[in-house]
Nucleic acid binder design. Structure first.
Lengths: 275, 275
DNA sequence: GGGTATTTGTCCGTATGTATT
DNA sequence: AAATACATACGGACAAATACC
C-alpha cells in the first residue's frame, strides 16, 4: 500500500538481481511480459525499469531487451609514490599496468598552447592571460579507454630552454626527468585533488558512457612543485567512476596481498538510526 | 528532426541554466507553462525535466515547482598526514573543521560486536567468523550531515587489554593514542582506498539525498598498520559525492593559498577527437 | 539484400492522488 | 477549504533498432 506500484515492481526485480536469480548479463522479461506478470500498464513497468537504470542495475538495448548489467572489475590507481619520480606523463602508468600483465597504450600527446584560465590559472599560479603548454593524451588498457589526461606547463619553462615540451610529441623518459635534466628543475612534491562530477560530452564519447549521465567521472588534479615551492606542472586526469578506484598510502605499509576480488558483501554498518 | 522532442526541450532548458538566464535556485516555468511554450504534451515536458534531474541540474518539489539546483561549496578532506597521528575517530576531523570556523559535531559511537565478513575480513586479515568491534559515528558540520564512519578493530585488541574499545562510548584522546598508551601499539602507516558507489537506503536517508539514487557517495576505507605490518584498524567513511573532495599530498608541498572558490570554468581539454 | 516479427523509444491524452501554499 | 503543482497510472499509436528467416 505505501509504495507506488512502479517502486514495488522495481524492488522486486532488484531483489531478484541481488539474490542472483537474475544473473549478471542475463535478460529480463520483456516489457510486455512484465506488464502481464505484475498486472500493470507498460508505462508503469517502464517507470520501474527507469528506476533500475538510474541505479545502474540494468540497461536497455533497443530492439533486444533489458539486461542486468555486467559486473565491472575496477582498475586501481595508486596516487602516492616517490615525490620526485611521479612521471609527468604516462611513465609510471606504463610500468604499473604492464606489471599486471595488461597492455597499456597512450596516444601521442596533442600539444597546444593556450591562455591560462580557470583552475589552470589558479593551480599553476601564473598571471592571468599568460600562456601555458597543454599536452593531452588518451590512455587505454587492453584497448579499452582508461583515462584522459592533460598536463599544463607554464610557458616560462619553454622560454628557459625546455623546448621539447612544445616540440616533441613524445618525451620518452618522462617530462619530470626531462625537466630535471634540461633545466635542473626537481619535482619535490605534489598535491592531488580528487573529486567526481558528471562527464562532459567529450568524456562520455571517449569512455563510451551511457549518454544519460548517470555514470560520473573522477577528476584528479595533480599540481607538482619544485624546491622553491613553485608549481611546475598541473596534470588533470579523468577516469570513469564506475570502474576505477584509488589507493593512497601513508607511512610504513605492507604490500597488499592480491586478494581475489569477489562478493560485494560489505559489512553492515548497522541499522542506520539517523536520530 | 534529429533529436527527440524531449531532448530538444531539455537541451534548451540546460542552455538557459548554463548561460545563467535561469539562475541557481530560481524556479522554472511550471509543467503546464512549458507545455504551451514548447507545444508539447505535459508528459513530454516531464520527460525533459527527468533528463535534467538525472544530470543534477534541476530538482522538483511537489506542490511548489521545478527549481535550478543550488551550487554547492565542497568540503575538502585531506587524506595524507602524519602516519602515527591520524586519529582513529574524529580527532583530526574536529581540529580541521574548527580551524575553518565551522562547527563540527559527532554522535557518540555506537559500539557493536560483529562477526567479521566481507571487506572487514579481508582488510583486517582476521580469521573468518572471528569477531570484531565496530564503532559507528555520525558526523555533522554546522548541523549538516557530513559523513558516516565505522571503525572496526580486531577482538584481539580488547582481549589484550584495550577494554575501552567496547566500554567507553567516547575515547577523548582518540583511539590511536589510546591503543598506543594502553597496549604500546603504534600506528606506523595506513592505506586508503577510495571509490564511489550508489548510496544505500541508510545513507540516502542520513544525508538527505534524493531517493532517485543519482547522487553517489565516496567510500574511503582506511586500513591502519602497526610496526609489524599487522592491520589494527579498518575505518570506513562515507561522504556524499556531490559536496566533498579529497586532497592528497606527497613530498614537499607549499601550503595552499585559500583561493576564493568561484567559477567552474574548467580549462578546455580540447575538442575531443577520440580517433 | 529484403521482409517480418520482436522489443524498446517516443509521444499523446486522460484521470486521480498527494504535497504545498 | 481551495487552488496549484507535481506524482502516479492507465490507455493507445507510431517510430526506430535489432534479430532472424
Amino acid at each position: 500500500m505505501p509504495d507506488p506500484m512502479y517502486r514495488r515492481i522495481a524492488d522486486d526485480l532488484r531483489d531478484k538481481i541481488e539474490s542472483g536469480e537474475l544473473a549478471h548479463g542475463s535478460q529480463l522479461p520483456t516489457e510486455l511480459e512484465l506488464r502481464e506478470r505484475y498486472d500493470a500498464s507498460r508505462n508503469t513497468v517502464r517507470d520501474a525499469i527507469k528506476w533500475l537504470i538510474t541505479r545502474g542495475l540494468v540497461e536497455t538495448r533497443p530492439g533486444q531487451g533489458t539486461f542486468v548489467v555486467e559486473k565491472i572489475e575496477p582498475y586501481i590507481t595508486v596516487l602516492t609514490g616517490e615525490a620526485s619520480e611521479s612521471a609527468g606523463e604516462g611513465d609510471i602508468y606504463i610500468q604499473e599496468v604492464t606489471a599486471k600483465r595488461r597492455v597499456p597504450k597512450a596516444t601521442d600527446p596533442r600539444v597546444e598552447i593556450q591562455a591560462a584560465a580557470g583552475v589552470v590559472l589558479e593551480d599553476l599560479q601564473v598571471e592571468p592571460k599568460s600562456q601555458v603548454v597543454s599536452r593531452h593524451q588518451q590512455r587505454f588498457i587492453d584497448g579499452i579507454p582508461f583515462s584522459l589526461q592533460t598536463s599544463f606547463y607554464p610557458m616560462g619553462l619553454v622560454e628557459r630552454g625546455a623546448l621539447r615540451l612544445i616540440q616533441a610529441p613524445d618525451i620518452a623518459e618522462g617530462t619530470v626527468a626531462y625537466l630535471r635534466k634540461e633545466l635542473g628543475l626537481s619535482q619535490v612534491g605534489y598535491r592531488d585533488k580528487i573529486r567526481v562530477r558528471a562527464p562532459d560530452a567529450n568524456e562520455s564519447a571517449f569512455f563510451r558512457l551511457p549518454d544519460d549521465g548517470r555514470v560520473a567521472v573522477f577528476e584528479v588534479r595533480r599540481t607538482a612543485f619544485d624546491e622553491e615551492g613553485d608549481p611546475i606542472r598541473l596534470t588533470i586526469s579523468i577516469y570513469p567512476a564506475d570502474r576505477n578506484q584509488f589507493t593512497v598510502t601513508v607511512g610504513k605499509v605492507p604490500d597488499e596481498i592480491p586478494a581475489e576480488p569477489d562478493v560485494t558483501s560489505d559489512q553492515a554498518q548497522g541499522a542506520g538510526r539517523t536520530g
